[in-house]
């Protein structure tokens, strides 16, 4: 059990049941999880244990069947669709497994897209995004389109986009599933550094043990519940 001073994300007795034809699939069956500011937490568990579902709920992409999901104290289910859309833009960073980027936009434009949506001027986008790209080691690729980037480079752009607007939490669903293990290690190094130097809160799912090794807290899901919650020194 983790006790954190200021929880960014709280899932309380969350259930999520999908209706699939005639049967109900109980993806989450009373999940309790609290993520504090500055955490670097991995969510693990067998395929189908509910990791993606939990991240979708945390990311205001979906609403629970029952229970509450609070982001910075706000119950996401109480918000209208456009309000959830705004919360996602302003308070949450997303890194998906693949196809993260908009193919017709350059690496820079992709990384700056959340800022652009917020109405940040192009000059300021440049001032804020270019250093990030430099820190992620892809500064010189800024003008390239996604199809001219390797899988690892694409994920770095996605990381830049996710943190550019300084969200409360970055949610990453198997961010390394589509890259080789060396690249995965490097991506984790980068995420860890951002966590340590900038205090970015990360919650990511994975089933790669080498990725898990970077986490300072490992939450294991099983059948839609927390099975283990392991905080490391």
């Amino acid at each position: 059990m983790t006790v954190t001073s200021s929880p960014v994300l709280q899932l309380e007795q969350v259930t999520r049941t999908y209706r699939q034809g005639e049967v109900d699939v109980h993806a989450l069956r009373g999940l309790d999880l609290s993520v504090g500011s500055g955490e670097f937490t991995a969510m693990v568990g067998p395929s189908g244990s509910g990791k993606t579902t939990a991240l979708n709920l945390a990311g205001a992409l979906d609403v629970p069947t029952s229970g509450r999901v609070l982001l910075e104290g706000t119950d996401l289910a109480s918000l209208a669709a456009h309000q959830r859309s705004r919360i996602r833009r302003d308070r949450i960073g997303f890194i998906f497994q693949a196809y993260n980027l908009i193919p017709v936009m350059s690496a820079f434009e992709n990384a700056a897209s959340v800022l652009a949506l917020q109405g940040v001027s192009e000059a300021e986008q440049r001032d804020r995004v270019m250093p990030l790209l430099a820190e992620l080691g892809i500064e010189q690729l800024a003008h390239r389109r996604p199809d001219q980037l390797s899988g690892g480079q694409q994920q770095r752009v996605a990381i830049a986009r996710a943190i550019a607007a300084k969200p409360a939490i970055v949610l990453a669903d198997e961010p390394t599933a589509n890259v080789d293990s060396t690249t995965a290690e490097r991506l984790l190094d980068v995420m860890e550094r951002l966590n340590q130097h900038h205090g970015v809160t990360f919650l990511f799912s994975t089933h790669d043990d080498r990725v898990v090794a970077h986490a300072r807290r490992v939450v294991t899901l099983m059948d839609g519940r927390v099975h283990h919650d392991d905080v490391r020194a």
Binding site: S85, R88, D90, F94, I102, S113, V114, L117
Partner: peptide, 13 residues
């Protein structure tokens, strides 16, 4: 479809 999904996820209305 996935692209629109990403766009909507990051807050495009």
């Amino acid at each position: 479809v996935r692209e629109f999904g990403v766009m909507k996820a990051i807050g495009v209305g």
